[in-house]
């Protein structure tokens, strides 16, 4: 393995990493929001909304991710919806991750027992107070391990976006290999970089998990 070559390629790889991180963080942020909202809608008891969310989840789960990306980037323009490579990437990654986050948060909501509702009702708490002070922290805590799983997968799945020409980490590596044929150097390098990203995120996740098992502090 030629480390000098890796060093030489590093600036390019960092440019790719930057894009990977931007797209991933946008998708993670949006998918967590949509996930929470979707989970609330799916458990809302409002039948049309429940069916719509369920259909969405089943569609995303039931079709290949790569096909979803191509559908958004190559398919939607013929319906008059044209997005840049960047936004197509963000939309595809968010759409994929949201379906899984909806299920994660739904499990979290289900973990908050009927007893909590009884307690809040008997104390006279308003519905929003119960939702914010009790349901949200408890559901988040219960959903966190599986939500972290999806967050990590979101970062890794940003690699698929090289297929539509988004200049992210994997794209840069593949691109350089096309010129220099240094496959082992490039793939080993990006594996390490992905691992560092994932470990950092997992670490943050464990920290949040510990924090949430402590009080609803700071008020």
């Amino acid at each position: 393995m030629d480390f000098a070559y890796i060093l030489e390629a590093l600036p390019d790889l960092m440019t790719g990493l930057k894009m990977t991180l931007i797209v991933s963080f946008l998708a993670i942020f949006l998918s967590c929001l949509i996930g929470l909202l979707g989970a609330v809608l799916r458990t809302s008891g409002i039948k049309p909304l429940q069916y719509a969310v369920t259909a969405y989840v089943e569609f995303i789960r039931g079709t290949p991710y790569l096909v979803q990306i191509f559908f958004i980037f190559y398919g939607l323009p013929s319906l008059g919806l044209r997005f840049s490579i960047f936004w197509s990437g963000v939309i595809a990654l968010t759409a994929w991750a949201s379906a899984f986050q909806i299920e994660n948060f739904r499990a979290g909501l289900a973990a908050v027992g009927r007893g909590m509702h009884d307690a809040s009702a008997s104390l006279g708490l308003k519905r929003w107070q119960h939702s914010v002070f009790i349901v949200l922290p408890l559901a988040t805590r219960a959903a966190l391990p599986s939500a972290m799983n999806t967050i990590v997968a979101t970062v890794k799945n940003s690699a698929y976006l090289q297929a539509i020409g988004l200049v992210e980490l994997t794209f840069v590596a593949v691109d350089r290999i096309a010129y220099d044929f240094r496959a082992i150097e490039m793939f080993a390098s990006i594996c390490v970089i992905y691992l560092i990203c994932v470990f950092t995120i997992s670490g943050l996740g464990y920290m949040v998990e510990r924090r949430l098992s402590r009080p609803f502090g700071g008020r």
Binding site: A119, A121, S122, I134, L212, S213, F216
Partner: peptide, 17 residues
């Protein structure tokens, strides 16, 4: 409900508080 307190079989304390 503000005038009526209730105690449950399973306590129903908020576990995160």
């Amino acid at each position: 409900r503000q005038d009526v307190g209730m105690v449950f079989q399973n306590f129903n304390l908020y576990p995160h508080l």
